[in-house]
Nucleic acid binder design. Structure first.
Lengths: 221, 221
DNA sequence: TCTAGGAGTTTGATGAGTCAAACATTCCGC
DNA sequence: GCGGAATGTTTGACTCATCAAACTCCTAGA
């Protein structure tokens, strides 16, 4: 189990990368969210990298690995369920619950969490509209959509492929575009009708937009 | 605010010194309760002394100062209210809540604690019979009272018997209700004017309330 | 009264988490 | 494309919490 501090960094990185304006999770921003100095954040992010929870290179942006994303989702889930519980069952005010949940989220067992979730009727989002990741770390936030809807520069995870033809699937497999794979959208050229993708650990490739449209992705954090 | 570790040491010292058999809070015992090695406990107890929370001299017993007792009481109060809350409101089983409360007690704010206390009707003891210190750190601890004042389901230890008649005492001895014995209050039927008790290791028995009133007990841990 | 062994202490080490200050790199505006 | 501002990194230091190993103290029984 990750320490409290590690959980806080993971959560910070996840929420930063989820922010609409596609802001990278940079050291300074992470430090600001967690409430430490940049030097501390640097040290910690290195630890996350060593632990396989994030990927990071000097002067580069920080990205969570699948494992890190899973862990961060879990923290977020705990946070939001606790918040909702404190408001709906205990009757605290929304203004008070954030700070409270900030501490309780690290102390709650899976068993108790599930019980609270049950009492609340297994909510899918909190009243802020923030999605509550399910017990498997998935959140509605990321309803899969065609990769062609991603902004250039975005990262996503392949979720589903609509074309079931063997030839197409084999092509995707060779390219490294299997479900679960992270992929970066390098460029979209609507005039040429093409999209350039770079699957993690592979070389980039260019597809036609109609073909790419059959590849559904969820935004990656 | 004391760290989590400090709170755990304080709690350990308080419960050790409260134990009926007048056992001193020694380093080895504290270490065992907290779950660390004696060398660690020595180091920590020195810190408690420096912080004015405990008094301690080399090779001597550890005693809490007023300030330390106050802080320890507070931890105990948080622990027991959380336990009670988890059982009565959340519906967890008694067997599960101790470990949970062990972590939550360090993460709960005064505001939330008070709210839980309110939801529970400001209880004075938990179903184990453990007293819940009030917000000022005072606890009913161990003032013996008639067993008829216990809540059904409570556990207690026989402290004193007011009726000195031999016949009555012999009856109690045969039933297993000797001072020091732990006893569970199974049921109280005020209409029938009877109380059903189950001394530890014996079969249950039913007494009339006027008779039972002469049996004084202390809440058991 | 002497001593064996249990209880307690000290020492030196470690890892987590943090900061300030000095240094390095990157990026943006001209 | 250059230079300063913004950003990021390194270094050295500190506290908290912990342990193992070596040591010291105390006491109960022969």
């Amino acid at each position: 189990m990750a320490t409290e501090a590690v959980e806080n960094y993971l959560k910070a990185i996840l929420t930063l990368s989820q922010e609409s304006d596609a802001a990278d999770a940079t050291i300074t921003r992470i430090a600001a969210v967690v409430g430490v100095t940049p030097s501390t954040a640097t040290t910690m992010v290195k630890r996350l990298d060593r632990a396989g929870l994030a990927r990071y290179e000097r002067y580069g942006a920080v990205r969570l690995t699948a494992k890190g994303r899973r862990a961060a989702s879990d923290v977020l889930r705990r946070h939001r369920i606790v918040e909702l519980f404190l408001v709906q069952i205990v009757g605290l005010d929304w203004s008070e619950v954030h700070a409270e949940a900030e501490r309780l989220e690290h102390a709650i067992s899976p068993r108790l969490l599930d019980r609270l979730d049950e009492m609340l009727g297994r909510p899918r989002s909190d009243p802020h509209g923030d999605p509550i990741p399910d017990a498997d770390g998935r959140s509605d936030h990321a309803r899969p959509g065609p990769i062609t809807a991603c902004a250039p520069g975005a990262h996503a995870a392949v979720a589903r492929v609509l074309d079931q033809g063997a030839e197409f699937l084999q092509f995707l497999a060779r390219a490294g575009l299997t479900p679960g794979t992270r992929v970066a959208v390098v460029a979209i050229d609507s005039i040429a009708g093409s999209i350039t993708l770079k699957p993690e650990g592979r070389t980039a490739l260019t597809l036609s937009l109609p073909v790419a449209q059959r590849i559904l992705v969820t935004p990656a954090f």
